[in-house]
Simulated scan of single mutants.
Amino acid sequence: MAEDNDERAFFGELTPAALPKAKPKVQPHYAGHRDRLRERFAGAGSSNFADYELLELLLFRSIPRADTKPIAKALLARFGTFAEVLGAPVSLLQEVKGVGPSVALDLKIVAAAAQRMARGEIKGREVLSSWSAVVEYCRTAMAFEEREQFRILFLDKKNALIADEVQQTGTVDHTPVYPREVIRRALELSATAIVLVHNHPSGDPTPSRADIDMTRIIMETAKPLGIALHDHIIIGKKSHVSMKGLALI
Rank of each mutant, 00 (worst) to 15 (best):
F79D: 04
L189F: 10
Q167G: 11
F144G: 01
I212H: 07
L55N: 04
A17L: 12
R61S: 15
R180A: 15
V166M: 15
S91C: 01
K244I: 06
G226C: 08
T215E: 12
G170V: 12
Y137I: 00
A133F: 13
A31S: 11
H29S: 09
P176L: 13
A222R: 01
L196W: 03
P64S: 02
D6T: 05
V135E: 03
G203I: 11
F144L: 09
K25M: 08
H230S: 08
V241N: 04
R116W: 13
T15N: 03
A222S: 12
P205W: 02
A143G: 04
V110R: 08
A77T: 05
P28V: 02
L37S: 11
V177D: 00
K108C: 00
W131R: 09
Q27Y: 09
I71Q: 01
S239M: 07
G100K: 00
H33I: 14
N199M: 11
G43P: 00
N159T: 06
N48P: 01
P101L: 01
Q115S: 11
R209E: 15
L128P: 00
E84W: 07
I194N: 11
A114G: 06
A114E: 00
A228K: 14
A104D: 00
L196Y: 11
I218N: 01
G12Y: 09
M214C: 15
F11N: 14
A228H: 05
A191I: 05
L54Y: 04
R34S: 10
R34A: 13
H232N: 13
G12D: 15
H174E: 13
A112P: 01
H198V: 04
L19W: 13
E3G: 02
S242Q: 06
R216P: 06
E181P: 00
V135Q: 01
V26C: 06
V241Q: 13
V172T: 13
A186D: 10
I194D: 10
K97P: 11
I218D: 00
A17Q: 09
Y30D: 08
Y30P: 07
M243R: 05
V127H: 02
F49T: 03
A247V: 08
P70W: 06
N48L: 04
R139N: 02
I235R: 07
A2G: 05
I183Q: 00
R216E: 15
E95K: 10
L59N: 02
K238I: 03
A186V: 13
A88M: 09
A44I: 07
F154I: 12
P101G: 15
E220P: 03
P201V: 08
D67E: 14
I122Y: 00
G226N: 07
R209M: 13
D173G: 13
L196C: 14
E220L: 08
L246H: 05
T140R: 03
V166W: 09
L93E: 03
L55K: 05
F154L: 14
K238F: 04
F10Q: 07
K21I: 07
V26E: 14
E181Q: 15
I234A: 12
D164C: 12
K23V: 12
G226M: 04
E39I: 12
V26S: 11
D106S: 14
T140A: 04
I217S: 02
L55G: 06
M219T: 10
L248Y: 04
A2T: 05
G203D: 12
V172I: 15
V110Y: 03
T206L: 10
D173I: 14
E220C: 01
P16R: 09
P179S: 01
D106N: 10
S130C: 11
S239R: 14
E39F: 11
